[in-house]
């Protein structure tokens, strides 16, 4: 009997630690909006990745720039070629830590993630406010934040300055499942 008990504990030990500490997805949704009186430009990606480590509060997002799709093909070309220079800087990422949250809480929590937003080759320290919700199988994360183009050396020439906002609103939602 004792053998069985310890075997069960052994299995449980591996399961607890290996199974449920990290939650991740490769299908997170990120959209952004550039709002000006002339036109609104919206783009979406369904190919962002996200990973959360419950033990440390470590949180990271990454999205391929080429995965953003626009209603107009020309916008997409300009976005990749002229502004984000996706051949040189193929990915944008956020790496940080979730502060002041309860990993065991059931209700939706307001949280702050403190870390670095790396985009267009420029890394900027950011504190992003968002929400985290425990689901039966994982975590749902949502956040809305602003990115000033100048923070990341994204140059918007005068000739198009009426069409493209200086500050871009970014929205992300991710459903993370055990890794």
């Amino acid at each position: 009997m004792r053998h069985l008990f310890f075997l069960a504990l052994l299995v449980a030990g591996f399961d607890l630690t290996g199974g449920a500490q990290q939650f991740a997805t490769r299908e997170a949704h990120i959209s952004f909006l550039s709002e000006t009186p002339v036109e609104d430009i919206k783009a979406e990606s369904q190919e962002a990745s996200a990973i959360l480590d419950v033990a440390t509060g470590g949180l990271a997002f990454q999205v391929p720039i080429l995965s953003f799709h626009f209603p107009k093909a020309l916008m997409e070309e300009h976005f990749n070629e002229n502004y984000m220079e996706s051949a040189k800087f193929p990915k944008a990422s956020f790496r940080g830590t979730v502060m002041g949250w309860d990993p065991d809480g059931d209700a939706q929590q307001e949280v702050v993630a403190k870390g670095k937003l790396d985009m267009h080759g420029v890394s900027v320290a950011r504190e992003v406010t968002g929400t985290m919700t425990r689901t039966t199988s994982g975590w749902m994360i949502g956040a809305t934040f602003s990115v000033p183009c100048t923070d990341h050396d994204i140059d918007i020439p005068k000739v198009v300055s009426e069409n493209i906002a200086e500050v871009i609103d970014v929205t992300l939602t991710a459903t993370l499942l055990p890794r």
Binding site: H3, L10, G58, Q62, S93
Partner: peptide, 29 residues
């Protein structure tokens, strides 16, 4: 056998310990 089991259980915890968490996060990408 008991000792070995306990050691293994702790090893199980240690494998997924916070120390390696940040590296694991980056591995994912």
């Amino acid at each position: 056998f008991l000792r070995a089991s306990v050691a293994l259980v702790f090893a199980g915890f240690a494998l997924a310990s916070p120390l390696s968490a940040q590296d694991d996060l980056m591995d994912f990408f």
